[in-house]
Structures are given as structure tokens and as C-alpha cells.
């Protein structure tokens, strides 16, 4: 488990971790002293070490979300020392390393806080609100038939790049966690604008933005104050411009769609 660098000085830390048995019981911060942590470990590996010790002591290990540990799946979360995914910019928690902390640091670890993201257990939150928003319109309909040639539909390079940048959203929820309003605007706008910009997405363009925004509001996310915290904390660097694009899409859809309900 220790790191590769034999000269790295091992660290002793104090963790304050949010422990909560389940959705229905209130939780609290619990303090854990942690010894001999290599600066080469990832943040999640550090938690693995803590959990191994907890298991040996017969205690309940700290529950946290993780999957690929390569920074691409969006599964890991954690609000670390007052920041979504910790102190580094453009990183997920699995890509955050212990060298970002100092010996004898106290590290506070909390789950994402949002009414729409209820805590399942300890640091794990239910992010299925994002799934329901996606299901409301974050797709394109592809009719059956012959496969068209890839170069049949011309798309300007700038548009293709913008759509791709928006499509890199991994749905981790750091934008919601960092936003003072627990707003999901950056996530929803990335999904909306990614498809709205491309010819394939134009078919459902109006209903998509109407339905996704409606679902976002139903889930209980806050509104946007344009503080920019979401984009600053986004591990893949989704731009605030997407929110402007979504608002534009929303205004024009609401003004021109045939949907009067």
C-alpha cells in the first residue's frame, strides 16, 4: 500500500469524517488519528488504509463512493477541507494525492450537501437525481436504417470542439456540492448544450431543454447566482458558457415550442 518513493516522508494526519448510519439517522463528524501515510498515496488509498485499520478493530469502515480510480467515471465525491474533490483544481478525489497535504494536517471530509443528494451512508450520497434529469431529455433519438457516412453531416470544428468539451462532463456532482445554492445548472447545461449544438440533437432541441430544466426544478436543486464556483471546482473544466447556452435554449424553446402545457 505504501508509495513508490522510498525517500518520501510518511505523514500523520487527523481526519474528521462524517459518519451517518443511514438516510434516516442523523450523522456527525468523527475524529480519526491516522499514522504513516505515504504522500504518494491517492486520497482514496489513504481512506482504504483507515478502513483496513477500522476493520481490524471490528469497527464499521467508512463508506465512500469510488469506481475507476482513474478520474474518468465520476463516481468518487467527497467535500475535503471545504472544497469539492479537495484543494487541487481540475481533479477528482481519486486523482488527489496525499502530497497535497502536510504532515499533522487536520482533514475534514464531508459528503456532497444538497437536498437533491440525500446521504445514503457516511460519505455516499444518492445522485440518481442526475439520472432522472438525463432521462427527461438528455438523449438523441436514432431511427433505424442504414448507417449514414460519418462525414455526411458537416459540423464546424469550433462547434464540434465546444460540444465535445461539454460532453466531457462525468456527472460527479461537484458543481452542485460547490455551489452555494446547491444548483445543478452546470451539469444540466453541459448535457443540454452538448446536444443542442450538434445536428443530431436538433430534433429534440426544444423539448429536451424544457423537460430537463423542469426535472431539475422538481429534484429541488437551487438556482444559479453566477458565482462561478461550479466551473472552478469541475474536475473536467466544464465552462460557465454552457449555462448561458442553456438559458438561451430555454428562452427560445419556451417562446417558440408548441408545448402549451
Amino acid at each position: 500500500m505504501a508509495g513508490n518513493n522510498p525517500n518520501a516522508k510518511l505523514m500523520n494526519l487527523t481526519l474528521k469524517v462524517w459518519r451517518q448510519r443511514n438516510m434516516n439517522t442523523p450523522g456527525q463528524l468523527v475524529t480519526y488519528p491516522v499514522k504513516n501515510i505515504s504522500p504518494d498515496m491517492s486520497f482514496l488509498e489513504m481512506l482504504d488504509v483507515v478502513n483496513e485499520e477500522l476493520l481490524i478493530k471490528g469497527e464499521d469502515p467508512i463508506a465512500f463512493d469510488h469506481d475507476c480510480r482513474e478520474g474518468i467515471c465520476g463516481m468518487c465525491s467527497l467535500f475535503i477541507n471545504g472544497r469539492a474533490h479537495g484543494p487541487e483544481r481540475g481533479t477528482t478525489t481519486c486523482q488527489l494525492h496525499m502530497r497535497s497535504f502536510k504532515d499533522n494536517d487536520t482533514i475534514t471530509i464531508e459528503p456532497w450537501r444538497a437536498a437533491a443528494f440525500p446521504v445514503y451512508k457516511d460519505l455516499i450520497v444518492d445522485r440518481s437525481a442526475f439520472d432522472r434529469i438525463q432521462q427527461a431529455g438528455g438523449y438523441v433519438s436514432v431511427n433505424t436504417g442504414g448507417v449514414p457516412d460519418a462525414n455526411e453531416i458537416p459540423i464546424p470544428k469550433t462547434i464540434a470542439d465546444k460540444a465535445f468539451d461539454a460532453a466531457t462532463c462525468i456527472g460527479c456532482g461537484a458543481c452542485v456540492a460547490a455551489c452555494k445554492n446547491a444548483s445543478a445548472m452546470l451539469f444540466v447545461s453541459a448535457k443540454v448544450s452538448q446536444l443542442a449544438m450538434l445536428p443530431q440533437g436538433k430534433v429534440e432541441r426544444k423539448t429536451r431543454v424544457e423537460n430537463m430544466v423542469a426535472q431539475m426544478d422538481i429534484e429541488g436543486f437551487g438556482a444559479c447566482s453566477n458565482t462561478g464556483a461550479c466551473a472552478a471546482e469541475c474536475p473536467v473544466g466544464i465552462s460557465l458558457e454552457n449555462i448561458a447556452i442553456m438559458n438561451r435554449e430555454y428562452i427560445s424553446a419556451k417562446a417558440t415550442s408548441e408545448n402549451v402545457a
Binding site: N81, G82, R83, A84, T108, A178, G228, A232, E233
Partner: peptide, 10 residues
């Protein structure tokens, strides 16, 4: 949050 540092990201 028990600890929150919005001044570091906004």
C-alpha cells in the same frame, strides 16, 4: 458544510 471555503473557488 462544517467546513466550507467558497472564497477559494469563487
Amino acid at each position: 458544510y462544517a467546513e466550507n471555503h467558497p472564497e477559494q473557488n469563487t
